[in-house]
């Protein structure tokens, strides 16, 4: 459905929606959902049994679990591979994520760490009163043999309620997933090669490429 009303709405919610997309990583899964009766991760089910938008991805990285956990544990490192996140700074128990939004603006989202199991799992969620309710977790598990570590990232967000919320969900449901997939691949690149691959020929082109991806 794409009538005029929807389009009008799209303009007014675009900022929030894109910020949501950018926040894909600053999201967290608050509760485990029941599996589908097989051994596959729940987020690969054909019809998710939750209203939340849930995304999940796994990559295998040829580095020890502890090293990857350490890197992620310092949230200040994350903007090195999360293209939409400008900075993450600590304020007491909170982390403030500054996320790029359209038109050169930024949006701040405040999160707290809700679980921290050394070398295994880190989870975070937005604090109460945040414009965007999101949550995320990253898990580290030994891969078989010499393959390194399996890193799984799961995140969810409650699409804001009401008509506006539904419009946001409809418009931006795919974006966080794409962003998450790319960011996780960049994390792998950074850990395995020390850098994030770019095909740019000049430094200028790399900046352009980033802006493009931010839409």
């Amino acid at each position: 459905m794409r009538n005029d009303r929807d389009l009008g709405l799209a303009g007014t919610v675009a900022g929030v929606g894109l910020a949501l997309g950018g926040l894909a990583f600053g999201a967290f899964l608050t509760q485990r959902r029941k599996g589908g009766g097989d051994d596959a991760p729940f987020y690969t089910r054909k019809s998710p049994d939750s209203d939340d938008a849930v995304l999940g991805r796994t990559v295998t990285i040829r580095k020890p679990r502890a090293e990857l956990y350490e890197f992620w544990h310092d949230f200040g490192n994350l903007p090195r591979f999360m293209e939409n996140v400008e900075t993450i700074r600590s304020e007491g128990d909170h982390r403030v994520w500054t996320i790029k939004a359209p038109g050169g603006r930024t949006v701040d989202v405040r999160t707290e760490v809700s679980e921290d199991t050394q070398n295994r799992r880190i989870a975070w969620r937005s604090v109460e009163g945040s414009d965007i309710e999101t949550s995320g977790s990253v898990e580290f598990e030994d891969a078989p043999g010499q393959r390194g570590t399996r890193v799984s990232l799961v995140m969810s967000y409650d699409p804001p309620a009401g008509e506006v919320g539904r419009a946001i969900a409809k418009l931006f449901m795919r974006e966080p997933e794409v962003q998450a997939r790319h960011d996780l691949k960049r994390f792998k690149m950074l850990m395995e090669t020390g850098e994030v691959a770019t095909s740019a020929r000049t430094k200028d082109q790399t900046r352009k490429a980033k802006q493009q991806e931010n839409g």
Binding site: R62, R147, G148, H182, K185, R186, K188, A197, A209
Partner: peptide, 25 residues
Amino acid sequence: CGGCFHCKIQQYSACQNSNPAEKQD
């Protein structure tokens, strides 16, 4: 890259880290 799963088993043309993330889709 020389350091990923495929490079380590000499499947260099399947390197996982050389195609920029945003171009892999």
